[in-house]
């Protein structure tokens, strides 16, 4: 006699119905687009000529590495993703892809992106990309996210590394400029994500993620947003007087930095009702524009510098 009722267990193998789109969703395409853009800027501002094929290879590897991080993140977080409105529609909570399939996909992409970047471009960039993936998938996702309210502060380093990897891909070394880009993204991350967390705090609380608004409350979060924004604006402005980036960058940084400060002061002042909700949403939306514009102007400065000698 058997204690297991074999009729009650479905022993048939699971046949996947996952479509290509589900695997693309695992790569977090929106995050990837920001990674591609910041990496492109890191590559373009490097003071060396990079062959277009090598530039394409570098950006592709960094993008795929970022996608691998996203897949590994979703594989680990499938339980809390199912509990949050924002993430409940991801492929694993929907049952399209299993946790194991997502993990295998992520590991495969991580391996190929790092090895390809190392072999075809250089190993400084390859090693930095490996570190970035490790930092996001292990340090942030597995360790920090469910443990501390400072999760996105420290974890933000992973999102700030792509331009550094790209600079290393172009030059084979590191310098002050990519570290400035790193610092800008690093200090941009807390006000950006805490603005999101303020109007999604119910989601995070339900999933048991110790985001700052859940742990310390919305008022403490508003103060932290303001303080980090002050540091961000100062750091984003500094490269201009220090002579690393040009006047167009400086003016853009000054004007948009004033906008960031104004919006974060509004978030600090308006604490209840529709005004508070509007202020946080405005800061969240503007923060995306702020980072995009700063990096776009850097790209523009490079293009103008390259074209100017031909025109004049």
């Amino acid at each position: 006699m058997s204690v297991v009722d074999h009729n009650a267990i479905d022993l048939s193998p699971r046949i996947s119905e996952a479509e290509v789109g589900d695997y693309i969703a695992l790569l977090k395409p929106r995050v990837m687009s920001l990674v591609i853009f910041t990496a492109l800027v890191g590559l373009m501002i490097a003071p060396v000529h990079v062959h277009p094929v090598l530039a394409f290879t570098s950006i592709l590897c960094i993008a795929v590495g970022a996608g691998a991080s996203g897949a590994l993140n979703m594989a680990y977080e499938h339980d809390i993703d199912a509990l949050m409105t924002r993430t409940a529609n991801r492929p694993i909570p929907r049952g399209k892809i299993t946790q194991g399939e997502a993990a295998a996909f992520g590991i495969t992409l991580a391996f190929f992106s790092v090895m390809t970047l190392g072999i075809l471009v250089n190993w400084v960039a390859g090693a930095l990309l490996a570190f970035t993936i490790f930092f996001y998938a292990v340090v942030y996702t597995i360790w920090l996210k469910r443990w501390t309210a400072q999760n996105i502060v420290i974890g933000g380093a992973a999102g700030a590394l792509p331009p550094v990897v790209a600079w290393a891909a172009a030059t084979g070394s590191l310098s002050v400029e990519p570290l400035l880009l790193f610092l800008i993204i690093f200090f941009w991350t807390p006000p950006h994500f805490w603005a999101l967390a303020l109007f999604r705090s119910d989601d995070y609380a339900r999933a048991g993620v110790p985001m700052l608004p859940v742990v310390a409350g919305p008022d403490a979060t508003r103060l932290q947003i303001l303080l980090y924004t002050i540091v961000l604006v100062a750091i984003a402005l500094a490269p201009w007087p220090l002579g690393y980036f040009g006047a167009a960058y400086g003016v853009t940084s000054l004007v948009l930095g004033a906008g960031m400060l104004w919006l974060s002061i509004n978030v600090y002042r308006h604490r209840e009702g529709i005004e508070a909700s509007r202020a946080t949403r405005r800061l969240f939306a503007f923060s995306i524009l702020y980072l995009f514009a700063l990096f776009a102007v850097l790209l523009l400065e490079v293009v103008v510098r390259a074209i100017a000698p031909m025109v004049w």
């Binding site: 046949i15 996947s16 119905e17 996952a18 479509e19 290509v20 695997y23």
Partner: peptide
């Protein structure tokens, strides 16, 4: 058919 189609796509 759905499984065949998605497998072919993959």
């Amino acid at each position: 058919e759905a499984q065949k189609k998605s497998r072919r796509q993959r």
